[in-house]
Design a protein around this nucleic acid. Sequence first.
DNA 1: AGCACGCCGACT
DNA 2: GTCGGCGTGCTC
Length: 660
Amino acid sequence: MTAPTVARVLVDSSLPQLDRLFDYGIPEPLRESVIPGVRVKVPLRSVGRMADGLVVEVTSEGEYTGTLSAVESVVSPIPVLAPEVWALARRAADRAAGSANDIVRLAVPTRQVRVEKAYLAGIADLPPASVVPPEIRGYEPGVVEDILARGVRAAVDAIPLVHEVPSAEGSRWVGEWAVFLAATAARTLAAGRSAILSVPDYRDQDQLEAALRAVIPASGVVRLDARQSNPDRYRQFLACLGDAPRVIVGNRSVVYAPAANLGLIAVWDDGDPLHSEPLAPYVHTRDAALLRQEQQGCALLLVSHSRTTEAERLVELGWLQSVSPVPAYSPKVIPTVHQSGGERLAVQARIPSSAWQAARRALETGPVLVQVARPGYAPRLACADCDQTARCARCEGPLQQKTARSVPGCAWCGALAVDWRCSNCDGTKLRLAGNGATRTAEDLGRAFPGVRIIIADGERSVLTVGKEPALVIATRGAEPIAAGGYRAVLLLDGERMVARESLRVGEDCLRWWSNAIALAARGAPTLIVGVGGALATALVTWKQSAYASRELDDRRRLRFPPAVRVATVTGTIEAVARAVTASGIVGGDVLGPVDVAPGTVRTILRFDYARGAEVAADLRAELVRAATSRRRPSASARTRPASSSTLRIRLDDIEPFLEG
DNA sequence: AGCACGCCGACT
DNA sequence: GTCGGCGTGCTC
């Protein structure tokens, strides 16, 4: 075998035409230090001559037949891009018709020289944390253990209860799901393998870390999350490198973390929109996890209280095994309708008297959770005469009132509506329409005099509450965990939540409600107001997967995602037309074009999963063409708004379907 | 993106 | 005859 003299380098550039490997010669003095994964500087015609890059591969024969340039220098000796992470980035990017570079940017944090120096100085490869794996409780004995051992994929229904774990302060309560994930991670670690755990937000991360601390020594856990400072993030990233297995916990991009001997990837609550990557090429945590599982043969768990249609599709395909708790436990869910009359205090608080009575009873023994849809006081104001939504005179934004005493203002520009006049009927009086958490709290405070009220919403974050009686009023997704579980749960704004126009509205509501119900104590009642039909049935029977299955059937009938894949193609009318032609998709699967901005149109393409790779490749090729040969001449660029680029392509974006 | 190469109009 | 316009294409 000849000496490796060629470095295959990924050049750091966001240009689609440069998103491939470039071959460089390795000069003699750099033979030892140019190894896969290290950061290098390489000459590149353009980009100011010298570009940053990452060595992906070192080989004796490259693919380029021309004269090679030479690697200029090695920036840092640390191999930050693991081969399997590169393989994942390439594959995920190809599937999304995007750039591997964009994914590598998510996978490898920016370099921090000081942090790196400290790391290199103190590489004390800590001995692997010794772990006694706890028993995995609540499922058929051996089933989950077997999934972990064999590297199988599964969709797991979480146990809808809370659990007490020991902590530095004595003890604290977390969702049973977190205890389950911690146990699977500990088991993986005990087998000498790494585990990656991805959660949507810091509140879930907080619970999961608490559960992990109870079973794994601190040295065995690494956290990577978006709230860390750059140096912190880089320090934690470096801690993932090396041969010692670790449990790596973080938010969506943690699925790209380097992990020695990866044994498990677990995603908690894959329906949470925070798992949907907002940066190009918009790869969802679940999809990245599925690709990585396939490439590395580790176990994969999608754990949630309510199954997404995406996961259900994979279950029905046999790609995911479906795992449910044994013995099954169904929370006590009672659908309730609005009724006139009844208790005076209940009427005052706009809740059914049965809910009022249940809450009052529960408040004798502990905390009660009230879930509302929106924060603030009166999120919407309307004309008292004609009922038209009140809008800002300056910018047409909707008016809202933040507290009971505050002057109404514009939700968009903040302007105070001092001399408001209805644009429809010229009326000058405003009426409160809609209740925010604050207003609901006021009303409930009157209905339950003397009871302590705790408000938890986006602005007032509360992670935990004690077991003493209190009314906890929370916007969806911001519910604190109560010690011992809530003694009752009231889901108040069901009607309003369902009324939202969205392809996912059913799924989303089911997820919000299921997650709130899972915070109740065993046997505690949940009253859900104003919701019936399939959603209520799914909650009462605690069969979210059955709902997802029906929903998926509907999507199949309509040829909507996730029954099919979609590509959103946006740009000039000519560029979009060319891309549509290149995709080879015709007929009813071409939706549009529709105007989205002056000079910009959007077309949605639908295609079956089997054709996905081909369509993505065709669209990608067209994107590269548009970026190179079809350079915008300055003349026509001036006639176009500066914002509209020639061509943009996004795969599997359901936003355009949200309008129904 | 940058930057070189290339093929038609005004100039020493 | 050459200098230079920016349209076209490439970057190992």
